[in-house]
Simulated assay, not measured.
Amino acid sequence: MITKLNLEDILFLDIETVPETQYFSDLTDTKKELWNLKSKYQRNELSAEEFYERAGIWAEFGKIVCISVGYFILKGENRQFRTTSFYGEEINILKDFKNLLETHYNHPRQLLCAHNGKEFDFPYIARRMIIHNIPLPSKLNLFGKKPWEVPHLDTLELWKFGDYKNYTSLKLLTNILGIPSPKDDIDGSEVYRVYYQDKQIDRIIVYCEKDTIAVAQILLRLRGDAILTDDEIIHI
């Protein structure tokens, strides 16, 4: 039962990704051809170069520019939700995130939670760690684990209630559940421009942390708990 989960045992997270290079022309000839093959069924009438701005959604052609995390601190009737972010060079982001998991979230009862995390965030982080020769932390190493042993919560999966045909975006779910929208500045389609052209990583961090907060709010609503107020949210 979701209501039996200890909120302090859950690490909420969201990632933001971009193509590995700013321009398609920066790729090697081999990588260009591989991108052409990978994307040809998604591009419609666009060329491989025109479609390249969307390459960040594939771990093989993208990179992580921000991982935001959030966690609950509960003291009697008082609660806080604290958020912080890892950003900079991708390899350092991944090493710092791994250190957090191994230092503070290494117990079997502790869980990772994201929206569409099982399809995107968790495998993306794991793949990028392997690409960088970073050994996987136990929370991301699923080899040999039975389904009920996987330490991952996914608010999209919880909302599906077994309906695997349905996809509900974070923006839609926050709207229908009466949660303040995290999409008040940029959305995912603009991260490429904000990162490479505007060079405003601070906006991406704010956006990523708001998504992390939204995931926590959704879980609270699914549990029947009151959502967080502004004064309960602490940015570290």
Score class of each variant (00 low, 15 high):
Gly144Arg: 02
Leu101Ala: 01
Asn141Thr: 08
Gln110Leu: 05
Lys118Asn: 05
Leu112Asp: 04
Ile179Ser: 07
Cys208Met: 05
Phe122Cys: 08
Ile91Gln: 10
Leu172Met: 12
Gly88His: 09
His132Gln: 13
Leu111Val: 06
Asn175Ile: 09
Phe122Asn: 00
Tyr192Pro: 00
Glu119Ala: 15
Ile213Tyr: 10
Tyr164Asn: 14
Ile186Gly: 08
Glu157Arg: 13
Lys146Ser: 14
Asn92Ala: 11
Phe97Asn: 12
Thr212Gly: 04
Pro180Asp: 08
Ile176Glu: 13
Gly178Phe: 05
Ile186Val: 01
Tyr207Phe: 02
Phe161Tyr: 11
Tyr124Ile: 06
Glu119Thr: 15
Leu172Ser: 12
Lys165Ser: 12
Leu140Val: 04
His132Gly: 01
Pro123Met: 07
His115Arg: 11
Ile179Tyr: 10
Trp159Ile: 12
Lys210Gln: 13
Glu119Gly: 15
Trp148Pro: 00
Ser169Tyr: 01
Phe120Cys: 07
Ser189Trp: 02
Lys118Asp: 01
Leu177Pro: 06
Asp202Glu: 15
Asn166Trp: 04
Ile213Trp: 03
Gln200Asp: 15
Ile134Thr: 04
Lys183Arg: 09
Thr174Tyr: 11
His152Tyr: 00
Val206Glu: 15
Asp187Ala: 12
Ile125Asp: 00
Leu136Glu: 04
Tyr192Asn: 14
Thr103Gly: 07
Val150Met: 11
Leu94Ser: 08
Asn133Arg: 04
Asp163Val: 03
Leu94Lys: 01
Glu102Pro: 04
Ile131Trp: 10
Leu142Val: 15
Leu111Met: 14
Tyr192Gln: 09
Gly117Gln: 00
Asn166Lys: 15
His132Arg: 06
Asp96Phe: 06
Ile213Val: 15
Lys160Asp: 10
Tyr124Leu: 10
Gly162Cys: 11
His104Cys: 11
Ile201Asn: 11
Lys118Phe: 04
Asn166Val: 14
Leu158His: 12
Phe122Pro: 08
Gly178Ala: 02
Ile131Gln: 09
Ile204Ala: 00
Lys145Arg: 14
Ile134Val: 08
Asp121Met: 07
Lys118Cys: 10
Pro135Leu: 01
Phe120Ala: 03
Leu156Ser: 02
Lys165Thr: 13
Ile93Met: 08
Arg127Ala: 14
Ala114Pro: 03
Leu173Gln: 08
Lys145Asp: 12
Cys113Gln: 06
Leu173Trp: 11
Ile176Ala: 02
Lys95Trp: 00
Trp159Gln: 14
Gly144Ser: 05
Lys146Arg: 14
Arg127Ile: 14
Val194Tyr: 01
Thr155Arg: 04
Ile186Phe: 01
Arg128Trp: 02
Phe122Val: 03
Leu100Ser: 10
Asn99Phe: 12
His115Glu: 04
Leu153His: 10
Arg109Val: 07
Pro180Cys: 11
Thr168Lys: 14
Arg128Tyr: 00
